[in-house]
Design a protein around this nucleic acid. Structure first.
Lengths: 339, 339
DNA sequence: AAATCATGAGAAAACGTTTTCTCATATTGA
DNA sequence: TCAATATGAGAAAACGTTTTCTCATGATTT
């Protein structure tokens, strides 16, 4: 057994070539199934490579191919509620292709954003995915004119860019139809701030399904707003709702707590449905929350595959792609089957 | 204005050398403040570099220096509640040093773990940080004998490794002392499963401060357990507590809800304190939760700086480093000052 | 005036791969 | 038997940097 380690401590193709008694070019061709070569030689080289644990240096490879098999993920969603599933999807989609992901949290800070973008470019990322908390705000960093493709997920993209988001209207319709399906007729929508595009899209889909006169109450994205909204409705007292579609799970949680405090049974008296399927919240609510899932992981997958495609030079039609939401049935609406 | 772009589309040092009318070696030395050179030449090269937007290719640089200015972050905390702040701290600490972070979510899957570790090594990371959900479990991947330094944060490390975690005992003491300070005398501890090392450390610190006879109730990490525990205590009815130290914020949330349902006022009748400072939950609890913060972001910073130090060849004493927790005072205990 | 020294800048090697040539030998066809 | 072709494998260039070495030129010392 001869020694085969270079000074760097990592096994290089030269060590392998020496060990196998061939040239580095032969080794390279053997391992990449390129070139002409005796099958026996190829097999022997591969065997020895496995034995001594040779793994090609991706830096060297990337230098030559001008592909780094690396993409950058830019996010300002510090808390990560939306970003995390998206990230998981991206990572899952790309790991099979040998692509790694740089995580760059920019916390709404333009200076930090620039630093991260520069660092990514220096490191020759093959592409960038920008992701955020809402589809109608863009990240505080200029991604136009970069030498690599950029895909936007859950954040506003540049004109002529590829952008992915959830189909808010379809999700809201899903929720509203479900409330009707479990027999509810007096529906209300308690949701977030009206300046969110998502809020408006969901509200108008709700109106379409529930009737134009079905009340919509705008507020903020908090439990206490849900609580407050119920207090307001019940103190007004006229034509109390029997089905409540909430703009997110936190609001739904507040709504359910407020109903319980008033002795209103969920789902016996009133059905409540949320939005986001923030599992740790939705599952712990009593009763567990039926809610709309935006399929963020799938959205991440698609974004990952898209940036990969663009990096490989395949063209893609620019524009906003809305991915369908799905219903997650738990117990806060009654009903059991998913369709 | 001559053209200075190479075919790759990115400006290289050769383009810059041509533009400046000097050799590439001179350019390199100029930009890195190395070598001997007329000050005027250096300045001129720097100016032109900025003009044409030259940024050195980190791959090429890394190939030569055998440093990639990249580290890998391995995590199995899919939900990200613990990992996210740690990540933020790591990123924040390293971005100043030009180091980028590969995010590798392995979801408790050994095969996926191996894939990610191999990918990181291929990409010549300068070091790896492993992070998880609890200090007494290790990631399902073998990080021993890797050619790069490994630092563990919030997960069990290999023997002789550098590991960071929060000081559970100190945090629990902080909470218990605070309950006494706001005048509570009949303390109980409602916490998670006893097989967690953290749970046992917190419980024994609680016992030390609250008295060995102060009751400790073990359960699970959920709101409903907090709810249940209060139901049990109040139905037993003997010597009801006036101060409750909860093992995490979710339990505290369940406890507070259960107390409210029984007409017990928080914090007037009973003080409740949580653990984790999971802000989105702690802030939305009514009343907002006083809780113990594990300083995970700071933990991430330290881990980041440590892996950097090790990567640069500086030695560090192996062992478990416990970082202090801090108290975050909101309204669920009464009292106002932090100390 | 000759020898020494400081200065500024370029040439070339190196990092670890992949790829394109080139070339010797073996095989085939007439 | 001689040429044409296949086959196997190596040499060298390339990717974009950094670093070490070399070499003019001009300034300083004897």
């Amino acid at each position: 057994m001869t020694t085969h380690r270079a000074r760097s401590g990592r096994v290089t193709i030269h060590d392998l070539a020496r060990e196998a008694g061939v040239s580095v070019s032969t080794v390279s061709k053997a391992l990449n199934d390129n070139g002409r070569m005796a099958a026996e030689t190829r097999a022997r080289i591969k065997r020895i490579a496995a034995e001594i644990g040779f793994r090609p240096n991706a830096l060297a490879r990337g230098l030559l191919s001008s592909r780094s098999f690396t993409i950058g993920l830019l996010t300002n969603d510090t808390y990560g509620r939306f970003t995390l599933p998206v990230m998981a999807g991206i990572s899952e989609a790309l790991v099979d292709h040998g692509v790694s992901v740089f995580l760059c949290a920019i916390e709404d800070d333009p200076a930090l954003g620039k630093i991260h973008v520069d660092a990514m470019l220096d490191k020759q990322v093959d592409g960038i995915i920008a992701t955020g908390k809402r589809i109608d705000r863009s990240l505080p960093v200029d991604l136009a004119g970069l030498p690599v493709p950029v895909v936007y997920a859950f954040t506003a993209g540049a004109p002529e860019s590829v952008t992915f988001t959830a189909d808010d209207a379809q999700g809201a319709a899903l929720a509203t139809v479900w409330l009707k399906k479990v027999g509810r007729r007096r529906l209300v929508h308690i949701t977030g701030p009206e300046d969110f595009v998502s809020v408006r899209e969901r509200a108008s889909a709700f109106a379409k399904e529930a009737g134009e006169d079905a009340p919509v109450h705008y507020g903020v994205w908090s439990e206490s707003w849900g609580h407050q909204a119920i207090a307001d409705l019940w103190s007004a007292g006229e034509r109390l709702p029997d089905g409540i579609f909430c703009g997110n799970d936190q609001i739904a949680r507040g709504v359910i707590d407020a109903l319980r405090e008033r002795g209103v049974k969920v789902p016996d008296d009133v059905s409540v449905i949320g939005f986001d399927n923030w599992e740790i919240l939705a599952e712990q609510t009593r009763p567990p929350l039926t809610t709309v899932d935006m399929n963020l992981k799938e959205l991440g997958r698609e974004a990952g595959l898209m940036v990969l495609a663009l990096a490989e030079g395949r063209a893609a039609e620019p524009g906003l792609r809305k991915l369908p939401c799905k219903l997650v049935v738990r117990q806060s609406c009654g009903g059991t089957q998913i369709d």
